[in-house]
Simulated scan of single mutants.
Amino acid sequence: MVSRVPSASRGKVAAKPASGPGRPKDLGKRAAILEAAKKLFSSEGFAGVSMDQTAAAAGVSKLTVYSHFGDKEALFTAAVLAKCQEFMPDDLFQPQPDGPLREQLRAIGHAFFALISSDEAISTHRMMLAGNVDDHLREMFWQAGPQRTCAAFAAMLKARADRGELDIPDLERAAQQFFTLIKGELHARMMCGLCQRPVRSDLGAHIDAGVELFLRAYERR
């Protein structure tokens, strides 16, 4: 909902502009709506969630939900993005001049696997694979989640390559390869319900192996 800016009356000071789109009036309510949406979409699926239901779960009015997000598609996109940023905030991908590349890759690997192995992420991925989900919804999910993460990681790889630490001819492909290595067979088995999240030591070995293979391919000698 777009707020209107009152016109200044003659001889009077103009009123302070109202908050525009993308500038929420109440960050606490926005956070509550997103938290409710993340849980509802992962448990009920896109079709099973209504704006009324989200408002009730967040403890706000339906009008408040619409004023922050506009429609259900925008709310779904924001919920996916918020879930990604919860596990993989932007500063995780910031170049660290004084930090070892290997350690940053490990940190990103652990954060990524924690994200994709969370109950909400697994439920959402299964929803995307269901036959009753249209391509438009899958595209929204992809752009807000995997595509955003891959782009942020590719930018980090470029910064490292510019400093001479990596030799990568195709940054986007390399980013995709890294996350595929981190997923491995382990994530596929979890998606199929064949295993639970591994213990910390086994997960560490799994991620370290992926990082080492990635560096073997792209680390500048």
Score class of each variant (00 low, 15 high):
residue 141 F to M: 03
residue 203 L to D: 12
residue 75 L to S: 05
residue 111 A to Q: 12
residue 34 L to K: 05
residue 210 G to C: 10
residue 183 K to Q: 09
residue 126 R to P: 01
residue 117 S to Y: 01
residue 69 F to I: 03
residue 110 H to A: 09
residue 107 A to F: 02
residue 142 W to K: 14
residue 39 K to D: 12
residue 47 A to F: 04
residue 179 F to K: 04
residue 106 R to C: 05
residue 192 C to S: 12
residue 23 R to P: 00
residue 29 K to N: 11
residue 11 G to F: 11
residue 165 E to T: 02
residue 96 Q to C: 07
residue 75 L to H: 06
residue 54 T to M: 05
residue 176 Q to L: 15
residue 160 R to D: 02
residue 8 A to H: 01
residue 48 G to K: 08
residue 3 S to A: 09
residue 161 A to Q: 15
residue 69 F to K: 04
residue 203 L to W: 07
residue 63 L to E: 12
residue 32 A to N: 04
residue 207 I to K: 08
residue 217 A to N: 03
residue 78 A to H: 03
residue 98 D to C: 09
residue 118 S to D: 15
residue 124 T to G: 01
residue 172 E to D: 13
residue 203 L to S: 05
residue 153 F to V: 01
residue 210 G to Q: 05
residue 63 L to D: 13
residue 3 S to W: 03
residue 82 A to Q: 09
residue 190 M to N: 04
residue 111 A to G: 04
residue 124 T to I: 15
residue 123 S to C: 13
residue 182 I to L: 05
residue 39 K to F: 04
residue 177 Q to I: 15
residue 205 A to R: 11
residue 126 R to S: 00
residue 50 S to W: 09
residue 123 S to G: 01
residue 9 S to E: 12
residue 103 E to V: 10
residue 154 A to Y: 05
residue 210 G to L: 08
residue 134 D to F: 06
residue 72 K to H: 04
residue 152 A to K: 04
residue 214 F to C: 08
residue 62 K to L: 11
residue 216 R to S: 13
residue 182 I to E: 03
residue 152 A to C: 10
residue 210 G to M: 11
residue 153 F to A: 01
residue 87 F to M: 06
residue 166 L to I: 11
residue 203 L to H: 07
residue 145 G to I: 00
residue 30 R to A: 15
residue 96 Q to F: 00
residue 149 T to Q: 14
residue 109 G to A: 10
residue 31 A to F: 07
residue 139 E to L: 14
residue 15 A to Y: 02
residue 153 F to W: 02
residue 211 V to Y: 06
residue 41 F to W: 07
residue 152 A to H: 04
residue 99 G to T: 11
residue 179 F to Q: 05
residue 130 A to D: 08
residue 153 F to S: 01
